[in-house]
């Protein structure tokens, strides 16, 4: 599915750029990350436990950042696999500054497969949208906590 979502943060473009490439931030923003390890520059293997309602699954896979154009955009690729299925994403993260604030736009293709896709159709788009919102909110919380420090 084609996904486009955006969120505006109260920090400048440069600060946001540095934050979203920081693995400790990544591990807090992606849902349910339990372990993250760098396997190359801007490439991480991770395991996560994601739960939505009664559904909970463990996933493992990677996140890869490439084609960087600091501080404007980069390509984000991920694939996570687990018992309930797999999630594959390939898209572009763009940071658009305006009045000291920065809007993060994610545009990309997300493929969900396996049991998740074939038995959870009713909830799939809602879940994707919820997890992305959770991610943005976690990022905002992280920003706020850093600003306070």
């Amino acid at each position: 599915m084609r996904v486009e979502r955006q969120y505006t943060f109260t920090v400048d473009q440069e600060t946001l750029w540095n934050l979203i490439l920081d693995p400790t931030v990544i591990s807090k923003v992606l849902p349910g990350v339990q372990k993250i390890e760098a396997v190359g520059p801007d490439e991480y293997n991770l395991t996560a436990s994601v739960g939505v309602g009664p559904v909970r699954g463990s996933f493992s896979g990677y996140v890869k950042i490439s084609d960087k154009e600091p501080p404007r955009r980069y390509r984000l690729q991920t694939e996570m696999r687990g018992g309930p299925g797999f999630v594959r994403g390939d898209g572009e993260v763009e940071l658009v500054p305006a009045d000291g604030r920065t809007t993060l736009i994610f545009r990309g293709d997300v493929v969900i497969g396996g049991t998740l896709a074939s038995v959870g159709q009713r909830l799939l788009d809602a879940t994707a949208s919820m997890l992305m919102d959770q991610g943005f909110k976690s990022l905002e919380a992280e920003i706020n906590s850093r600003l306070q420090k």
């Binding site: 009664p54 699954g57 998740l116």
Partner: peptide, 9 residues
């Protein structure tokens, strides 16, 4: 959900 093993409490 448990029968599909989407939930494994």
């Amino acid at each position: 959900a448990m029968k599909l093993r989407l939930a494994t409490p």
